[in-house]
Design a protein around this nucleic acid. Structure first.
Length: 579
RNA sequence: GCACCCGUAGCUCAGCUGGAUAGAGUACCUGGCUACGAACUAGGGGGUCACACGUUCGAAUCGUGUCGGGUGCACCA
């Protein structure tokens, strides 16, 4: 089943083509900007009229006449308005008809795509040398949401967690670990707090030149495949990954060990990358480093800007690894799209990697490489987020605080439940609030980290959406006749009709999110949907209505719940029966 | 110096590929629970969409310029 918008766009577009004589007219149908304009509006008539040189209102009324003559059952009424808009009012019976099709199988709320793509989603990708901090939240949950959305549409999703496990810091850490294990043995305890372990190693590194030298040597040995170093390294990586996985589980993020494609995975391909660039005659040596210069990239003072492939000392850089990854995704995984959910500050890096990748044949022509950039999390001082001491806040601390506050609130709001229930509710509400606070913002803008808005449970927040869901479930629990075969038969109240129409529009929003990768569109939608339910709830008695109306409203409520549930699931937010 | 992102209500942010009278949340003020859950809801005040010029039937949205903020630009990732 096509979306309403898609169907209308086609309907009006075809009529417009016939009337105007132009092929491929875009009628630009959008949801109506005001209720008095109907359900949808076509904005495209004016520009077409201009192209053909006719009066826009006349053209609009010709289009209306044509569509009316065809008597499409979906349309109740069309009006020409303003300079040449067409306002579209949908038929109530057609709406209820669509609803009943979906009720029988609520998976139809989101139709599956008719062209299945293989899509790589590269997200989260923390550096394993340190613990994840609040700055890692965005990429992790935006990527997870996109993966869920695309997967739900029926695409084949390959999650890739491109963790940093191979950089220079690991020499330092390995070196420090070897010291510790000789002195104290008990490594797991030492690694329980990665952050302080890193700090200790760094202090050692800064204080003792001899240690620093050994550390630099350790990187070379590690990357050269030295067995001893690899064992110690693996031990550290395993421990660090456990930390990450615990956070993913806590965040209800779908990443697992099998999605791991660490930097080290590409180590074996790096020489090949250099060779391939050489064969393509793209490499040149500048100040001792092997670089690719592309004319479209210039740096300070207009000098040509290199993509450095291999350092003077022979070491490889992240551009090298990323080129290997482009090749892997394009030719081994054979993906049609590769999404890189990475901080906007790396835009230039990805432009370069994509450009070199195309030029040197690391990417086939079939793959679309997309940097899904997101803005930086700022402190209240307008600078990239740091605490007063200059540290970042650990992600786990943010989550724990959210859960603590949710626990406090739920035990106050809903006394008399047992402690296990409180903990379960607090965990879900707290995590959801944090995720939603981030996902509901346009990903491209920088945003200010603020405890109170991130941990708010009122207004446009996840708890509001979850509350709407819990309310519906509560009503459904109170009726015991079952909803088998019960249909929506009334949309005569404005609140009923608005709610039903909104439900039908989930699929339109999901389409937009899948195309443009903006999860906040889905958040906006769900907030409006929940708001419409709240208004319906205030103005339309459900359980107290007479039998037929009661059933219709119960069915509408149930369908709302299903829509909220599916929408929230795409955001990676779980619902609760009670809260 | 060059490039990218941004500037919308006191604060935090939306604004659907140019549409009709610019919207939410929060904060503040006023109403609504013996009720299908008040984490809710109804209403009020609050705006030179940074500024200027341009494109056009129409601009917060597109273009140019100015101002202001953020970010990136050679061997870290």
């Amino acid at each position: 089943m096509n979306t309403l918008k898609h169907t209308l766009n086609k309907l009006v577009g075809e009529a417009l083509s016939v009337v105007s004589g132009l092929t491929d007219c875009d009628p630009n149908v959008i949801t109506a900007s005001k209720p008095e304009f109907g359900d949808y509006q076509s904005n495209g008539i004016m520009s077409i009229a201009k192209k053909v040189g006719t009066n826009p209102r006349q053209l609009a009324s010709d289009v209306v006449e044509k569509i009316t003559a065809d008597a499409n059952p979906l349309i109740a009424k069309l009006e020409v308005a303003g300079p040449g808009f067409i306002n579209i009012h949908l038929s109530d019976t057609a709406l209820m008809q669509r609803a009943s099709e979906i009720q029988n199988d609520t998976r139809k709320l989101i139709p599956t795509t008719n062209k299945v793509d293989k899509i790589v989603v590269d997200y989260s990708s923390p550096n394993l040398a340190k613990e994840m901090h609040v700055g890692h939240l965005r990429g992790t949950i935006i990527g997870d949401c996109l993966a869920r959305v695309l997967e739900r549409q029926g695409h084949e999703i390959i999650r890739q967690n491109h963790v940093g496990d191979w950089g220079t810091q690991f020499g330092m850490l390995i070196c420090y670990m070897r010291e510790i294990s000789v002195l104290q043995g008990d490594l797991p305890t030492q690694l329980a707090d990665l952050e302080s372990f890193y700090r200790a190693a760094k202090e050692r590194f800064d204080a003792d030149p001899e240690f620093a030298d050994t550390a630099r040597g350790s990187v070379v040995k590690l990357q050269g495949g030295d067995a001893d170093h690899l064992v110690v390294w693996q031990q550290f990586i395993d421990e660090s990954l456990k930390h990450c996985q615990a956070l993913y589980d806590k965040l209800n993020v779908t990443l697992s060990r099998k999605d791991l494609k660490a930097e080290s995975f590409y180590n074996k391909d790096l020489e090949g990358v250099v060779k391939k660039l050489e064969e393509a005659s793209l490499l040149s040596i500048s100040n001792g480093a092997r670089c690719v210069f592309l004319p479209e990239f210039t740096g300070k003072d207009g000098e040509p800007l290199p993509v450095i492939i291999q350092k003077t000392d022979g070491g490889y850089l992240y551009a090298t690894t990323d080129l290997a990854a482009v090749q892997f995704r394009s030719f081994d995984l054979k993906a049609e799209r590769s999404l890189y959910v990475v901080d906007a500050r790396q835009s230039l890096h990805f432009q370069q990697v994509f450009a070199v990748g195309r030029k040197a044949g690391f990417a086939s022509e079939n793959i679309s490489l997309e940097h899904i950039a997101y803005g930086t999390m700022m402190g209240s001082d307008g600078r990239p987020f740091k605490t007063r001491s200059g540290d970042t806040i650990k992600l786990v601390d943010l989550l724990d605080e959210a859960i603590r506050r949710a626990h406090e609130l739920v035990s106050k709001k809903n006394p008399g439940l047992d402690e296990t229930t409180y903990l379960e509710i607090a965990e879900k509400v707290g995590i959801a609030a944090v995720k939603y606070a981030d996902l509901s913002k346009n990903r491209t803008s920088d945003y200010v980290f603020d405890w109170s808005s991130m941990l708010s449970f009122e207004g446009n927040t996840a708890p509001y959406l979850m509350y709407a869901y819990a309310r519906i479930r509560s009503i459904l629990r109170k009726q015991n006749s079952g909803l088998q075969g019960v249909q929506i038969t009334s949309v005569s109240e404005v609140a009923e009709r608005n709610l039903l129409l909104k439900i039908m529009q989930l699929s339109e929003v999901v389409d937009m999110v899948a195309r443009d990768c903006y999860p906040n569109l889905l958040c906006n939608y769900l907030y409006e949907l929940a708001g419409m339910f709240m208004r319906f709830y205030e103005s339309c008695p459900i359980l107290k209505a007479e039998a037929q109306l009661r059933d219709s409203r119960l069915a509408l409520s149930a369908l709302t719940a299903a829509t909220l549930h599916q929408g929230l699931d795409l955001l990676g937010i779980e619902t609760l029966e009670k809260m």
